[in-house]
Amino acid sequence: NQASVVANQLIPINTALTLVMMRSEVVTPVGIPADDIPRLVSMQVNRAVPLGTTLMPDMVKGYP
Rank of each mutant, 00 (worst) to 15 (best):
S42R: 08
T28V: 13
T28H: 08
M22L: 14
M59F: 14
P64C: 15
D58W: 09
G52C: 15
P50T: 10
N1G: 15
V6R: 03
T18A: 09
L19D: 13
V20F: 09
V27R: 07
V20W: 12
P50A: 14
A3P: 08
P38M: 15
T53R: 11
D36M: 12
V27Y: 02
L17Q: 00
V5E: 01
V5M: 01
D58C: 15
P29E: 07
P33C: 15
R47N: 07
G62C: 14
I11M: 04
P50D: 11
D58Y: 14
P38A: 10
D36S: 10
I37W: 03
D58V: 08
P38N: 12
I11T: 01
V60E: 01
M22P: 00
Q2A: 15
L40G: 00
M59K: 01
A3D: 15
R39I: 07
I13V: 13
V5I: 13
V30P: 14
L51H: 11
T53K: 12
N1M: 15
T15W: 05
P57C: 10
N14H: 10
G52K: 04
P38K: 10
T54I: 11
N1V: 15
I32Q: 01
V5A: 14
G31L: 02
T54C: 04
T54E: 02
R47C: 07
P33N: 15
N46G: 12
A48G: 07
N8P: 02
R23K: 11
M56Q: 13
A3K: 07
V5L: 03
L51M: 12
M56H: 11
V49F: 03
M21N: 09
I37E: 03
A16T: 09
S24V: 12
M56I: 10
L19M: 13
Q2S: 15
S24H: 15
V60M: 06
R39T: 09
T18C: 04
V45M: 05
L17R: 00
I37H: 01
R39W: 09
T54K: 03
R47G: 06
K61Q: 13
T54P: 09
I13G: 09
P33R: 07
N14E: 10
P64H: 14
P64T: 14
P33K: 07
V26T: 12
V41K: 06
M43C: 05
R23F: 06
K61R: 09
N8T: 15
S24G: 12
D36T: 08
D36L: 14
